[in-house]
């Protein structure tokens, strides 16, 4: 347990296999509170499986997954893990299309998630103010009453980031946030993520090397389900094994 000291997320010796294929192979990873970390790796390196393990979608065969030093995530389901304070953003923008932008944010707001509460729940003034604030942060104030289905691709991505913030998580997992974004949108997203980190820890899984460079943070390179290299982007770019499996393709 000591090894997990001063970590928001602690993975040690995590193994996951699907029908004999080892998706994660003795993966170990430590994220510190307030850290912004980029995770890169070629297709099939285990990035998405890692997210699934952390958020309770997939149970690891062996290994420890601890949140905030003490909470064993392998024993909790998705809803419990989300309520602990781990938010997840999917690669494909995943918002509730039939609901309005404001309703999407309202659903994500931190608070009681029980049926009985939800039946008689009214937005408090404080919650309304929080929604206004979030709409400002993700630049969707003008679209607040629009069904989310009518947003552009980039706007949906931002709405989803807004929903993550509304959850008020301690740790955010963000899967390829800039896939399909224009350069300007990519830049805005990088600023957005950097401003989120500090108070919260953020793990960004990304393919786009320019975006990772823009984030200017510590990088973890995954390969075949385990960590190949870790350090600054320049440091890992210089690693010949990384060049071999990923950058040098």
């Amino acid at each position: 347990m000591d090894k997990a000291a001063n970590s928001i997320l602690y993975l040690d010796g995590v193994n996951v296999s699907f029908d004999g294929f080892k998706a994660l192979n003795a993966l170990s990873l430590i994220i510190e509170p307030g850290e912004l970390r980029a995770v890169i790796g070629p297709n099939g390196a285990g990035k998405t499986t890692m997210m699934d393990v952390i958020t309770g979608k997939t149970r690891p065969d062996t290994g420890d997954v601890l949140f905030a030093e003490t909470r064993d995530l392998t024993r909790l389901d998705e809803a419990e893990i989300a309520q602990l304070g781990i938010g997840r953003k999917f690669q494909k923008p995943s918002v509730f299309e039939k609901l309005t932008v404001a309703e999407n944010l309202a659903l994500a707001l931190a608070g009681n998630r029980r049926v009985r509460e939800a039946l008689f729940w009214r937005l408090s003034t404080r919650e309304k103010a929080r929604i206004d604030e979030l709409l400002g942060i993700v630049r969707l104030g003008a679209q607040r009453h629009m069904p989310a289905a009518r947003l552009s691709h980039g706007q949906k991505q931002w709405l989803e980031i807004g929903m993550l913030l509304a959850q008020d998580p301690k740790l955010l997992l963000v899967d390829e946030p800039v896939a399909g974004m224009t350069d300007a949108e990519t830049e805005t997203t990088a600023t957005l993520l950097r401003s989120i980190a500090g108070e919260r820890s953020v793990v960004v899984v990304e393919h786009d090397m320019n975006f990772v460079r823009e984030l200017a943070v510590k990088v973890t390179v995954l390969h075949e389900g385990s960590v190949l290299a870790e350090g600054s982007l320049d440091h890992v770019s210089a690693d010949h094994r990384v060049i071999e499996v990923y950058l040098g393709r």
Partner: peptide, 16 residues
């Protein structure tokens, strides 16, 4: 409605 349109997303928001 959220469950109907994106069930697993709703789970990751913390709803049972």
């Amino acid at each position: 409605t959220a469950i109907r349109d994106a069930e697993s997303r709703t789970r990751f928001l913390g709803y049972r």
